[in-house]
Design a binder for these strands. Structure first.
Lengths: 119, 119
DNA sequence: CATCTAATTTGACATCCATCTAGTCAGTGA
DNA sequence: TCACTGACTAGATGGATGTCAAATTAGATG
């Protein structure tokens, strides 16, 4: 649950897309994050978790809204986890997921535009 | 070049991911945008275009940095175009691409966090 | 221990996607 | 008109990915 080949947050990071010279490695890391976001089910899962009161959601609450089997939801949660977007924790019988706020903030900054510094 | 089945900007839009109830349709539209971003080559293309002086890049400048054939680059540019992220324009012999700033701004807002309004 | 439930893993399968080669279209200029 | 160049389209192919059924693991409880 906790030790997975997760995306290194120090790489897929920080500098806006409009900055020069995104390295191949940075691009690869970022692509991994966007691959995780490139699925409607995963987007809705992320939305469901992020919009929850308390900031966390049980898997049992995440299966109902979809016409998909448990294993499929589990798979999608794993992809989001490996992308460093959410984190999961078992408490008793249930597993609870939360978004990692830093991950979202990082992405927000990526799309920031450089304040139109007119030539 | 200009009339393609592009993502409708009015949908894949605006409200932060942490807002409740992302609809299935919105999720599908957003997923299309992220699919476009979910490739290292396309991320670097977008970065190359966005970081260019003058805000635009000729296809002829975008082929060199990659060890890929022209058609493949063309394909990636088409995907970015159909996702509403860039726009292309032919001027004489060459085709120039620019990023659509609104598209990036929209994405930036999507990942904005709701200022930690503690319960 | 036996059993029940929640969640994940495994393995299979159909579909999608990045890439290439070959061919085509658009614009320039002799 | 013909040839040349830049860019795109079409079709094919190998690899990645979403989904499910079946099996497995982790906790709770009798």
């Amino acid at each position: 649950m906790s030790k997975l080949p997760v995306v290194d947050a120090s790489l897929a990071c920080c500098a806006p897309l409009s900055d020069p010279a995104l390295s191949e490695q940075e691009a690869a890391e970022l692509a991994r994050v966007f691959k995780a976001l490139a699925d409607p089910v995963r987007l809705r899962l992320l939305n469901l978790i992020a919009s929850q009161e308390g900031g966390e959601a049980c898997v049992c609450d995440l299966t109902g809204p979809f016409e998909l089997t448990g294993p499929t939801i589990s798979h999608h949660l794993k992809v989001l986890r490996q992308a460093g977007l959410i984190t999961g924790e078992r408490r008793g019988t249930w597993v609870y997921y939360q978004v990692i706020p830093e991950a979202l903030t990082r992405l927000s900054g990526l799309f920031a535009l450089p304040a139109l510094t007119s030539a």
